[in-house]
Simulated scan of single mutants.
Amino acid sequence: MDTSSLYLTAFLVVGGIIFLILFFHYVPFFLWLSAKVSGVNISLVQLFLMRIRNVPPYVIVPGLIEAHKAGLSNITRDGLEAHYLAGGHVEKVVHALVSAAKANIDLPFQMATAIDLAGRDVFEAVQMSVNPKVIDTPPVTAVAKDGIQLIAKARVTVRANIRQLVGGAGEDTVLARVGEGIVSSIGSSESHKSVLENPDSISKLVLRKGLDAGTAFEILSIDIADIDIGKNIGAALQMDQANADKNIAQAKAEERRAMAVASEQEMKAKAQEARAKVIEAEAEVPKAMAEAFRNGNLGIMDYYRMKNIQADTDMRETIARPTTGGSNTPLNK
């Protein structure tokens, strides 16, 4: 064999290998064979076109095989391809449809794909419909009418509502509504003792309110797991009110005291003013007497008689003034 024949043979071998690699890459023959053996009607041309459309056949064909084996006739290749191109999870949707069919749950293909595209795990939702989920609420603080604070914890058993998964509220809304119901139930109780004696009354009252309306879940039961006694809020509020009243009373008393002090200072000022007027008037007496002497209206004997009368009056006032400690020393004015 000459050199040209060797080159031609090598070229054909390499070209054949490259052709087989490209063929099995764009035309998954063994996947087609697996689909034919499973009873799924799909051609090699369709598998090749999936590659051209950037749809992985290894995602679509296993889903078709699983649906065919489960007896689901409403799942088509075009539907799975459209869901994949829309950004959905083909495997989860097929698993959810098979699980729903086995559990006698009415779940159409369109609804399953809508739930998946909405961002929810449709397979987990179907599982939750069969096996309810228990959600533990955070501690909820409420105050009874007698002023005692109670801290309650509840366990909410929910089941997924397939019809409300698209557009329905999630777990956070359910927990918020349950917490609101617990606060309302405890707040309407006359005494905290009645709540401690009958914690099931909280569950019954909360369940009657229909808290699962508009949510993606159906509340099956609400069980009070624990109730602890907190602070005496009523007593604390009364103490705060008493302190506030005391501060107000003290402020008013201080205001009255300040007004009294101001009034006292005003009266002292008026007394000083009156005393000044008396002194001013007394200063006019010697002038009047001198004027009387000059005019002859007052004689010297009249003046001495007046002085004697004043001395006699001062003596009598001194005798009549009370003494201290039995001594004869008169009290100073």
Results as ranks from 00 to 15, higher is better:
His89Met: 10
Ala35Lys: 11
Asn41Ala: 11
Leu33Glu: 11
His83Ala: 09
Val37Lys: 14
Ser73Val: 05
Ala82Asn: 15
Glu91Leu: 08
Ala67Lys: 03
Lys36Ala: 15
Asp106Leu: 10
Leu97Trp: 01
Pro108Cys: 01
Ala96Ile: 01
Leu49Trp: 12
Leu117Glu: 01
Gly87His: 08
Ile60Gly: 01
Val126Arg: 02
Ala82Arg: 14
Pro56Glu: 07
Gln46Val: 12
Trp32Phe: 07
Thr76Phe: 05
Asn74Val: 09
Leu64Lys: 13
Ala112Thr: 00
Ile60Asn: 03
Leu72His: 07
Ala118Met: 07
Ala96Phe: 02
His95Lys: 14
Leu49Thr: 11
Asn41Cys: 08
Glu81Pro: 12
Pro62Met: 12
Tyr84Cys: 05
Lys92Tyr: 15
Gly71Ser: 07
Ile105Asp: 01
Leu47Met: 09
Ser38Ala: 15
Val94Cys: 02
Asn41Ser: 11
Gln127Thr: 07
Leu33His: 10
Val59Asn: 12
Leu44Phe: 05
Asp121Thr: 00
His95Leu: 13
Val61Lys: 03
Ala70Gly: 04
Ile115Tyr: 04
Ile75Thr: 03
Leu117Thr: 01
Gly87Thr: 05
Arg77Ala: 12
Leu64Trp: 13
Leu117Val: 00
Met50Lys: 07
Val93Gly: 01
Lys69Pro: 11
Met50His: 07
Leu47Val: 08
Ala67Pro: 00
Val55Asp: 07
Val90Pro: 02
Lys102Phe: 07
Glu124Ser: 12
Gln46Asn: 10
Ser38Val: 08
Val126Cys: 02
Asp116Asn: 03
Arg53Asn: 15
His68Glu: 13
Leu80Ala: 04
Lys69Asn: 09
Glu124Val: 05
Arg120Glu: 08
Tyr58His: 13
Ala125Thr: 04
Arg53Ser: 14
Phe109Thr: 04
Met111Ser: 12
Arg120Tyr: 06
Val93Ala: 00
Leu72Glu: 04
Gln110Ile: 14
Met111Lys: 10
Gly39Ile: 09
Val126Ser: 02
Ser34Trp: 11
Arg53Gly: 07
Ala96Asp: 00
His68Leu: 08
Met50Arg: 09
Asp116Ala: 02
Ile105Cys: 04
Ala125Glu: 03
Ala100Ser: 05
Ala35His: 10
Ala82Gly: 13
Asn104Ala: 10
Asn104Phe: 12
Ala125Tyr: 01
Ala82Trp: 13
Gly63Cys: 12
Ala118Cys: 11
Ile75Gln: 02
Phe123Trp: 12
Leu44His: 03
Ser38Tyr: 07
Thr113Cys: 13
Ile60Pro: 06
Arg53Asp: 15
Arg77Trp: 07
Arg53Trp: 15
Pro56Leu: 09
Ala35Gln: 11
Ser38Met: 09
